[in-house]
């Protein structure tokens, strides 16, 4: 899976600050269980993919994993031992920006025990603190 945009308006982006909590993508919408971020941070495409691979190894066939975030932001860096100046570095990798409250992964079709075990494995690949959440019941 290619975890980077197909088309972008600009190749390089400014770093930006991550302010506040997530006001969208903050509830379990597609599955029954979710993995919610508790900290702001950047999740790289490699970390997202590592999470997906670790989940696919322990999810049974009927389980379905949904990734709710996508790495839209490019992060550039300068080569080592290079003098400062001469413009911005080249894009190195792509990241998804997450705010506290963002639901990053969702699982459906399996029981709570399996979902907890799977999310525990994914959580080890994440650079932010996360927690297990369930779909909220209709009132």
């Amino acid at each position: 899976m290619r975890l980077m945009p197909k088309r972008v308006k600009f190749r390089k982006s400014q770093r930006q600050k991550i302010k506040g909590n997530a006001t969208r993508c903050n509830t379990v919408a597609f599955g029954d269980f979710g993995l919610q971020s508790l900290e702001p941070g950047w999740i790289t495409a490699q970390q997202l993919e590592a999470g997906r691979v670790s989940a696919s190894q322990c999810l049974p066939r009927e389980g379905k994993l949904t990734i709710r975030v996508f790495p839209h932001k490019s992060v550039s860096s300068k080569p080592i031992e290079t003098r400062m100046g001469k413009g911005k570095g080249e894009p190195e990798f792509w990241v998804a920006v997450v705010k506290p409250g963002t639901v990053m992964y969702e699982i459906s079709g399996v029981g709570e025990d399996v979902a907890k075990h799977t999310f525990n494995r994914i959580a080890h690949k994440m650079p932010v603190k996360v927690r297990f959440v369930q779909r909220r019941k209709t009132i």
Binding site: M1, R2, K6, R7
Partner: peptide, 21 residues
Amino acid sequence: QISDVIAASEEELLAEPEVIT
């Protein structure tokens, strides 16, 4: 039916995004 995830080719993985501007 379960649809298999098509693995991306090496060319596709190395490709850079198209810049529209």
